[in-house]
Design a protein around this nucleic acid. Structure first.
Length: 501
DNA sequence: GACTCGGTTGGGCAA
DNA sequence: CTTGCCCAACCGAGT
């Protein structure tokens, strides 16, 4: 008996049905050749060492939703427990795979997988189709347009994509035929894992504030796009980092997992803005999407983009190490209530406002603690629902004034910055409840409160809430000198590399 | 080549 | 209370 060959669509960061051309290609190929269709996702055994609890929950929810949406199309999601580059070649043989589709991703984790799979597939005569659908633009063609070099400014990037026509989104509406359904379509062994199976105890955790999945992503998108005035007037720098409910859309976790197509967001925005006066990039909502494209382009075109050493766009800065300070920062006990509130919100909810990221990133690096941005990026990778390889590295370089941004004397004050949008410190009181009873006058600098006030508020500094680990006014001035010295050295190094005239 | 200018998102002070 | 300026900057386009 001859086995029926299979077509695989390999899901990674494209956990959706809408605007998924690679998936549609797989379906069509299976239909045309009467092959089996097998949409797969790999969960690595050591996933918990790489993905924090909140993001793991988000991922599981996204996979459950994806499986449900695939079932509506008369197919399903096959979850494979194991490492993709080990398991996929086994499936090639077991399932007689002839055709494989996936999405183009630029995170080195995925590009390395692609290289290995390409080589194996070629030997086995398997045809591979990969589609650009995680970004609005094909970042490699943008790089090519810029003479194969990285555009170092946002405006330069915009000029490169200005006249590029963005393709329409595609939809998949037709049901998959019965003859494309493998015999093992109902096998439980491919089911989406429960949190239990992943040994993830969420009984101690709050319910996820931003539930994962394409369905929620599209609902959220439509909800915001319906507020047309708000969309048209949106200006990121004028939104607040410390409101109790987010002042921005929080679509980022959905875009980073591919639950929402960036291209769909793009077209919906264009539709909303059409014929209305509206804000412009870089501050507009469309501008935010373009920042993502900018960092993707930079990340795709730069070796070691997520490191300082060996990274051609990154200024070399002699960061120090201080495990105690790093830990205090990550756990939200620096003694600066605004910084601690932000870090605790991040850990609890997996999302903080972009300007809040500025505050804590500046504090960890050039502002106060003089700790490498790579350390901060690792903590963000653990905590953020919207973790994204190129955006995380790019933004950390920006904030630490290592690349793209150079005005290092612009330092965020952990005392003054939050006051601009939250004089009362309500945000602090929510996330640092120890200070709940502090009078407004001391909420941003509780160490200044007299002992009697501390006692009345039920929170003694140095006992119930930490003393500040550094004196901002002093250290930020020392750090300015260090930054200046690092820039001078960098300039000299660059001059040496330039050919002599 | 040398120069100017503008560029998402600071703080603090003088006027 | 607002505005302008200063503080230790670099990239890229235009002239």
């Amino acid at each position: 008996m001859t086995k029926v060959p299979s077509v695989i669509h390999w899901f990674r960061l494209d956990l959706r049905i809408h605007d998924n051309l690679a998936l549609r290609n797989a379906i069509n190929e299976a239909e045309n050749r009467k092959h089996f269709l097998r949409p797969v996702y790999f969960i690595e055994p050591d996933i918990k060492s790489k993905v924090g609890v909140n993001r793991l929950r988000f991922l599981v929810q996204s996979l459950q939703d994806l499986d449900a949406n695939l079932k509506k199309l008369n197919t399903r999601l096959y979850i494979i427990r194991g490492n993709a580059v080990e398991e996929l070649p086994k499936l090639f043989d077991k399932w007689q795979v002839k055709y494989l589709t996936s999405q183009v991703d630029i995170d080195p984790i995925y590009t390395k997988q692609d290289e290995i799979i390409d080589e194996i597939a070629e030997k086995k005569d398997i045809f591979i189709v990969r589609r650009v659908q995680h970004t609005v633009y094909d970042v490699h063609s943008v790089l090519k347009k810029n003479n194969n070099s990285v555009p170092m400014t946002y405006q330069k990037f915009l000029s490169l994509v200005q006249d590029v026509q963005v393709k329409d989104c595609i939809e998949i509406t037709k049901q998959v035929s019965e003859h494309c359904k493998p015999k093992d379509i109902d096998s439980k062994k491919y089911d989406v894992p429960s949190l239990n199976e992943l040994e993830l105890d969420d009984s101690a955790l709050e319910p996820l504030k931003y539930p994962g999945g394409e369905t929620e992503a599209v609902r959220r998108l439509n909800m915001y796009m319906a507020r047309r005035q708000w969309v048209c007037k949106f200006e990121k720098p004028n939104s607040s980092p410390n409101t109790i409910e987010p002042s921005t859309t929080v679509l980022s976790p959905y875009i980073s997992h591919g639950c929402l197509s960036a291209k769909l967001f793009y077209h919906k925005l264009k539709e909303a803005l059409n014929g209305m006066p509206h804000s412009q990039p870089p501050v507009s909502l469309l501008g935010q999407l373009m920042w993502r494209e900018f960092y993707y382009t930079a990340g795709a075109g730069t070796e070691n983009f997520d490191k300082m050493v060996g990274n051609s766009v990154c200024t070399q800065i002699p960061w120090g190490t201080n495990e105690e300070h790093l830990k205090a920062w990550a756990e939200g006990r620096t003694g600066y209530p605004f910084v601690d509130a932000i870090m605790r919100q991040l850990k609890q909810e997996g999302w903080i406002h972009h300007l809040a990221r500025h505050m804590v990133a500046c504090f960890l690096t050039r502002g106060d603690l003089w700790i490498s941005w790579e350390q901060g990026a690792k903590v963000f990778e653990d905590y953020l629902l919207d973790y994204d390889w190129s955006l995380n590295a790019g933004n950390w370089m920006w904030l630490s004034a290592s690349a793209f941004f150079y005005k290092f004397f612009r330092v965020y004050s952990p005392v003054a910055f939050g006051k601009k949008t939250d004089k009362e410190g309500l945000y602090i009181k929510k996330y640092v409840p120890e200070l709940k009873k502090y009078p407004t006058a001391f909420i941003y600098e509780p160490w200044k409160a007299p002992k009697s006030v501390q006692a009345t508020a039920g929170c003694i500094i140095g006992q119930d809430y930490p003393k500040r680990i550094v004196d901002h006014d002093k250290v930020h001035k020392d750090n300015l000198q260090k930054m200046s010295a690092a820039y001078k050295l960098n300039k000299e190094r660059k001059a040496l590399k330039r050919p002599l005239k």
